[in-house]
Structure formats: structure tokens, C-alpha cells
Amino acid sequence: MTLSQLGESFRQRRLIANLTQGEVAERSGVPRVRISQFETGALPELGAVKLLSLFEAIGLELIVRPAGHQRTLDDVIDETETDAGMNAEPASTRLRVRHPRKQASEVLKSVAKPRNAEA
């Protein structure tokens, strides 16, 4: 698996976890820009400490196994239990995580002076 492929898998799991890049940055200590570069494949390298920190921030762990290892039934069961525990939604139904922002009218009301106050 390349770093680019790992970044795409990370992005899918982040979306399933319903986290923004900013939230992951706060949890992991890795700048949001680096997370974006990692997810889009624009990052040439990523240190092990940062990678582990990113994984931990979204509830993933790194598992080391021999190259060419084929998935076993135990691997499938573990993945299914992990997905069920996170109340996972298919990545295809979620493209982006955004939290609601104040409407412009609310912001203007909070800074605008009443008209009769000027008289």
C-alpha cells in the first residue's frame, strides 16, 4: 500500500467517524494542512509518530503483518465488529463533514445598531 492509498483510506475512515480535518488536527497535533495533503496524496512522506497520532485520533490502529498476508476469517470478523461499534455509514453516502455555521442574518443582527438609536 502506498502513502497515497493509505491517505485515501484514512480519509474514508475519518468521514465515517464524522470528524472534520480540523477536529482531527486538534486531537492529533498534526496541522490540518498536512492532513489534507495526506488525504489527497500530495504528501511525499509522513513520520511514524504523526501517522500513529492521526490513526489514534480517528480510532484506528496500525497492525503489522507479513507482506502478502491474505485476509483471514478472523480479520473479516474483527473489521465487522469494529465497523458495527462505530455505527459506520458507507463512505459513499458521506462526502464531506461540515458543521453548521451562523447565518449571515444572525451575525448582522448581533452587530447592527437599532435604527431609532441613531436619532
Rank of each mutant, 00 (worst) to 15 (best):
E61R: 15
R13N: 13
F38I: 04
P66R: 14
A48P: 01
I63H: 14
N18A: 06
L73P: 05
Q70F: 06
V76A: 10
R14S: 01
S105W: 03
Q37D: 15
R65V: 10
D83E: 13
A104T: 12
E106C: 03
A48N: 07
T20N: 08
K109N: 11
Q21M: 13
T80L: 07
E61C: 03
M1W: 05
A57Y: 09
E106R: 10
R101M: 08
R115L: 13
K102G: 00
A84D: 09
N87Q: 12
V97E: 04
Q21K: 11
A67E: 15
G41D: 02
D75S: 01
V49G: 03
M86E: 07
L60F: 05
V24Y: 11
N18I: 02
R115Q: 04
Q70D: 11
G29V: 00
E118F: 10
M86W: 03
R11P: 01
Q5K: 11
E56H: 13
R115T: 04
E39A: 05
S92P: 00
Q70T: 13
F55V: 00
V107M: 03
E106V: 07
T2E: 12
A88G: 06
I35M: 04
L6M: 14
I58G: 02
T80F: 10
E118G: 02
L51H: 08
T80S: 09
T40R: 12
L95I: 06
G47C: 06
H69P: 00
R65F: 00
K113D: 11
T2D: 15
G22D: 14
T72A: 09
A112L: 10
G41M: 07
T80I: 04
A112H: 11
K102W: 02
D78N: 04
A57G: 09
L51M: 15
V97I: 15
T2Q: 10
S110I: 00
I58E: 04
R27S: 14
G47D: 13
S53H: 08
R27F: 04
A67K: 13
V24D: 07
L19M: 13
A57K: 03
S105Q: 10
I58W: 10
I77H: 03
S4A: 15
L95N: 07
D75C: 02
L95E: 09
V24Q: 02
L3P: 04
S53E: 14
E61H: 06
L60D: 06
G29H: 03
K113Y: 08
T82R: 14
R32M: 12
A88S: 15
P90F: 09
G47R: 12
I16A: 06
